[in-house]
Amino acid sequence: MEQEATYRGTVYPWQCDHVGHMNIMWYVGKFDEANWNLFARLGLTPSYLRGSGRGMAAVQQNVTYKRERLAGDIVGIRSHLLEIRDKSIRFRHDMTNAETDAFCEITVARMDRSQRKSVPFTDAIRETAMRHLAEPAEA
């Protein structure tokens, strides 16, 4: 996948907990913002999802914290598509500053919003995703 960031932002003081570190809810929020940029690169734009009656639902999310983020830190997230299956994709977000300090691996399923069940990706989305799969060394 392109090495362009899927998220860039700042840690604000109000995002920090009682010991001065960015609270876990804000890590998840920043990873979620990166999700939507990654999805758009795959053709899963908000207008496509609304128009097709489809959506994306997280079914598993694992976050690893390697270093705390503090108020004023500038963070970036780069995303790597790891796997595409019939109805789901798995990807990894790396949050960085000077060093990698957290990463999040997520599996999401493509959903039919009216039937509330998972459905296969279209061939066009699958073909686009296949072009963006990360090399095993990146995972």
Rank of each mutant, 00 (worst) to 15 (best):
S114Q: 15
S118E: 07
C104W: 00
Q115W: 03
K117M: 13
R113I: 14
I125D: 03
N97K: 14
D123H: 11
T122Y: 04
D123K: 11
T100C: 12
D101R: 03
R116Q: 13
C104M: 11
E127T: 15
I125R: 04
P120Q: 01
A102F: 04
C104Q: 05
N97R: 15
F121P: 02
A124Q: 12
K117D: 08
F121L: 06
F121T: 04
R110A: 12
T122N: 07
S114W: 03
K117E: 13
N97C: 13
T100P: 10
V119K: 02
R113F: 04
E127A: 15
R126D: 08
I125C: 05
A98N: 09
F103N: 08
E127F: 09
A102H: 03
K117P: 04
F121K: 01
F103H: 13
T100D: 09
E127G: 04
D123L: 11
T100L: 14
T122V: 04
I125H: 03
K117V: 04
E105N: 06
R126K: 13
T107G: 02
F121Y: 07
C104N: 12
Q115V: 11
T122H: 01
A98M: 06
T122Q: 06
A109D: 00
N97L: 12
S114F: 07
N97V: 10
E127R: 13
T107Q: 07
A98W: 07
S118P: 08
V108C: 10
D123V: 11
E105M: 08
A109Q: 07
M111Q: 07
A109K: 03
S114A: 15
Q115Y: 09
Q115F: 02
E99N: 13
T100W: 02
I106G: 00
V119M: 10
T107L: 03
M111E: 05
D112C: 10
F103Y: 14
D101Q: 09
N97G: 15
D112I: 08
T100I: 12
K117I: 05
R113W: 05
P120H: 03
A109L: 14
M111A: 06
R126H: 11
R126I: 07
S114N: 13
E99R: 14
N97P: 00
S118N: 08
N97F: 08
T107N: 03
E127C: 10
A124S: 14
T122R: 03
N97Q: 14
A124D: 14
R116E: 11
A109F: 09
T100M: 12
F103M: 04
A124F: 07
R126F: 11
R126M: 11
A102V: 07
P120M: 05
D123N: 10
D101A: 08
C104L: 09
K117G: 06
I125F: 01
R126N: 08
R110L: 15
F121M: 06
A98R: 15
M111S: 06
T107W: 00
V119T: 13
D101M: 12
A102C: 11
I106D: 01
D123P: 08
